[in-house]
């Protein structure tokens, strides 16, 4: 038990880092393919070590702290941004046995911890003492507040149906029917809101390179920058895993194809989500900041509320009620 307590998280860290390495490569490859290019292919076979080389380069780079920056905060910010990203991974159930912390309020824990990252971003943007960084950080905070609410609201339907906040419990509840079907509105709202939470295209306003150069991390270099990047991709990992758990039935197989082990099922669904994220990034332009707010408050939030209402209503209808 003791060894497991220590080794587990360390192994997990490497798994997550491995995923990040692969995800970045995969992202660049897929986007390359979609743009009639072949993507990275210079480092290692099939470009496999491209990300490794990139990270290595970042680690070797000079660490620059701008003279007018708030040094303590500047140095602290990447840590504040990264730690929660990794901490949320703890509650994710990959299979019924592979879960680190099977706590009762897993979902709540995930949502709560993940919002801390924004503080890191805000701090980083502010401490940089750069106008672009400040605007990026402000946007990030505004975006987080506006999208956290529909995100959580969209989940209420799922929680109602599963009757638990425990993530393993939610997966168990999807044995018969994945929540993506009865909770479709919830899924759409959740997916859009999670895109915004991840700061990914079309909601990548905090770092919008064509407007704000690089947004909140414009002054960061070397390994501090790497930390921000890492946090971002660990969130991609976590969010995709969460989506899989909440709406795609986690490790539950499709059509009763049980010959594939649960972990493979999980990974398949998970990869699908990651691919969709990349695909969206390759296609869509960036939404404008005021339209982003409108979308969050005027479209997603009412939709999410409506979904709660609908779920509650349908729950009472005999026959299909069991799915809600």
């Amino acid at each position: 038990m003791q060894a497991w307590m220590w080794l587990g998280p360390v192994i997990m860290l490497f798994v997550v880092l491995g995923f990040v390495t692969l995800a970045i490569l995969f992202e660049r490859k897929v986007i390359g393919w979609m743009q009639s290019r072949i993507g990275p292919n210079r480092v290692g076979p099939w470009g496999l070590f491209q990300t490794v080389a990139d990270v290595l380069k970042l680690l070797l780079k000079e660490d620059i702290v701008p003279q007018k920056a708030d040094e303590t905060l500047f140095k602290l910010a990447p840590v504040i941004a990264f730690v929660p990203a990794f901490a949320v991974v703890a509650v994710l159930p990959f299979t019924d046995s592979l879960v680190f912390a099977d706590i009762g309020v897993g979902l709540l824990y995930f949502i709560a911890i993940s919002s801390i990252t924004t503080i890191g971003i805000l701090a980083g943007g502010w401490a940089s003492n750069n106008k672009y960084a400040l605007i990026g950080a402000m946007r990030s905070a505004a975006q987080m507040i506006s999208y956290e609410i529909p995100l959580v609201m969209a989940l209420v339907g799922v929680i109602m149906a599963a009757g638990t906040l425990n993530l393993s419990g939610i997966v168990e509840a999807q044995k018969e029917m994945w929540f993506i079907v009865p909770q479709f509105i919830g899924f759409v709202v959740f997916f859009i809101a999670s895109l915004a939470e991840l700061n990914r295209t079309p909601f990548d306003l905090p770092e919008a390179e064509s407007e704000l150069v690089a947004g909140y991390h414009v002054e960061y270099s070397g390994f501090r920058f790497a930390f921000f990047m890492l946090a971002e991709y660990v969130y991609v990992f976590a969010m995709s895993a969460l989506t899989t758990v909440l709406f795609l039935g986690g490790w539950n197989p499709l059509f009763g194809f049980t010959f594939l082990p649960p972990l493979i099922w999980f990974l398949l669904k998970f990869s699908l989500i990651v691919f969709t994220l990349i695909w969206i990034r390759a296609t869509l332009p960036r939404i404008r900041v005021d339209q982003l707010m409108q979308l969050g408050w005027k479209v997603l939030l009412p939709l999410a509320l409506f979904n709660i209402f609908l779920s509650a209503l349908l729950k009472e209808i005999p026959g299909i009620g069991s799915y809600y």
């Binding site: 295209t201 919008a208 064509s210």
Partner: peptide, 16 residues
């Protein structure tokens, strides 16, 4: 222009 607005692919497709 599309790159300015934030979409990447049109840029490469147009350059193709």
């Amino acid at each position: 222009y599309l790159l300015d607005i934030g979409a990447m692919s049109p840029f490469l497709l147009a350059f193709r």
